[in-house]
Amino acid sequence: MSGSTIIFYMLAALTLVSGILAVTTRQIFRAAIFLLFSLIGIAGLYFWMQYDFVAAVQIVVYVGGITVLIIFSIFLTQQAGELLPKQKIGRLLYSALAAFCGFALTMVQLCQHTFKTTTEQPILPTVSNIGDRMLSVEENGFALPFEVVSILLLAAMIGCIVIALRSKPTTA
């Protein structure tokens, strides 16, 4: 068993365990922290697959951005030390069953399926390659989605501001 394999299993374990804890713990702050670990584990998997750029984006956006945002909103809406309300046991069972069924179905399909492999020359996901492709307007370029996403982000920003604006007190 090579070091790479060991690292992979450790990352997998980190991701899944902290994922499970994130959705089961009754302390919301801890849930956020477990989510953080899970996301870091995924970033680690990207590193393991040698997709450095995506891993960096994952850490910057998810770990550094979204998680912090979530933690802030927890601070805004939650009293300290308060436990999350318990869910009904029936609901828990049903949800577990549904999730398990879906998982089992997926796994059965996965095991029966053989993926083709290609022999073509791979493109290395280096930052320069990614940058070329992202701004390319040729075939296989992603300039248009890039622009669309930038507009979407702008719209989301404006939308957030509008939603979060304190509505004017209605003059009665």
Binding site: Y94, S95, A98, C101, G102, L105, Q109
Partner: peptide, 15 residues
């Protein structure tokens, strides 16, 4: 839940 059940159901049907 309905949604997931529907998706799984459809997946089973089609597969």
């Amino acid at each position: 839940i309905y949604f997931l059940a529907g998706v799984i159901g459809l997946a089973v049907v089609f597969i």
